[in-house]
Design a protein around this nucleic acid. Structure first.
Length: 155
DNA sequence: GCCAACGTTGGC
DNA sequence: GCCAACGTTGGC
């Protein structure tokens, strides 16, 4: 299985890279978008590397690296009536939503801001900066991944 | 807090 | 199957 590269968004007010550093690993539950789900179910595998992105904050930025530590499994909170992610259409027999588990790898010494990414000519193809792009899980190329990592190590 | 862009829902 | 209405995302 060839390693793939991804970008995952999170609002730091709900779950930040620091939370993940504390937890070491977490189930990426609560995703309720079919495109994002399909990536997790079909394309993400143990060992894939992920850019962790903080959205809805100042500044928005890729703040670190994480790794897929377990393949997709049914999303438990979809079956939890008390959860805000509860979905009556999803059952134990026929779960609709799935999620992978991710583990903390490292925080960037310098977060790579959205603004900075937009300024890189070599990154102008990134999905993240496409107008109206709001997918919370996006594939990135190895080249994009490597460039962001380099920027994150600077200074 | 605003609002553009998007995805989903539901009436027909 | 269309599409208007609605809710959500996420940058600014």
């Amino acid at each position: 299985m060839k390693k793939k590269y991804w970008l995952m968004k999170s609002e730091p007010s709900s779950y930040s890279i620091d939370d993940l550093e504390t937890d070491k690993k977490t189930l990426w539950d609560g995703v309720r978008n079919y495109q994002a789900r399909n990536f997790m179910m079909k394309d993400m595998h143990i060992g894939d590397e992920v850019l962790f992105y903080h959205s809805n904050t100042k500044p928005t930025a890729v703040v670190g690296l994480v790794k897929v530590s377990d393949n997709a499994k049914p999303d438990p909170v979809a079956m939890d009536k008390t959860s805000k992610y509860f979905d009556p259409k999803s059952t134990n027999e026929n779960p609709i939503w799935h999620c992978v588990e991710i583990k903390f790898v490292k925080k960037f010494t310098t977060p790579v801001t959205l603004q900075e990414i937009k300024q890189q000519e070599s990154l102008e193809g990134m999905m993240l900066i496409k107008k109206g792009m709001r997918l919370s899980i996006q594939p990135v190329t190895k080249s994009e991944f490597d460039q962001i990592c380099t920027l994150g190590k600077k200074r």
